[in-house]
């Protein structure tokens, strides 16, 4: 593991669970309560500021443990390194605080996650569907969502 990653891991060891690293990219699992505090301190970190939010996506793990795992990819120019944050929210009430006031790019990325997984981001400035039609019902990338909600895919 890189030097910076060990430093960061030591610094935040109280609020994270370190997942196995893959090709020098580390993943942390975070409790939703500590999420905002952690990303804020990562963004404003004195030594390794993570200026770029690369991606926000999600994994529906409802059949495994009843959660939806929202995944954040952060990048720091200073160390040319990524960090991956995984936050699990319950499938029944998938609500997370928005981070669009910290990274502007989170605005549309969170809209996409809301569109496809139904995760609601509280205090988001404009939480509308991004890709599916506005009148679409359901969230198509959830495991429970049928492949063709219109039955035979043929009703339009």
């Amino acid at each position: 593991m890189n030097e910076y990653l060990s430093k960061l891991t030591d610094q935040f060891s109280g609020s994270i669970e370190v997942l196995p690293a893959f090709r020098n990219e580390c993943s942390w699992k975070i409790n939703p309560d500590k999420f905002i505090g952690l990303v804020t301190s990562l963004r404003n970190h004195a030594e390794f500021p993570f200026e770029v939010l690369f991606d926000v996506t999600a994994v529906d793990k409802t059949p495994v443990n009843g959660t939806i795992e929202v995944v954040y990819h952060l990048f720091s120019h200073k160390i040319n390194g990524f960090i991956r944050l995984k936050v699990a929210v319950s499938s029944e009430t998938p609500i997370l605080p928005t981070i669009s006031h910290i990274w502007n790019s989170a605005n549309w990325l969170e809209r996409e996650v809301y569109d496809l997984f139904g995760v609601k981001f509280s205090d988001h400035p404009d939480l509308r569907r991004l890709m599916m039609p506005d009148e679409y019902e359901g969230f198509p990338l959830l495991k429970a969502h049928p492949l063709c909600p219109q039955g035979d895919c043929n009703d339009f």
């Binding site: 599916m132 198509p140 969502h145 049928p146 492949l147 909600p149 043929n154 339009f156």
Partner: peptide
């Protein structure tokens, strides 16, 4: 006819509209 995209997002043939 929708081709390989038999799913929720793609119209199954433009002759439906």
């Amino acid at each position: 006819c929708g081709g390989v995209f038999r799913n929720y997002a793609i119209l199954q043939g433009v002759d439906k509209i």
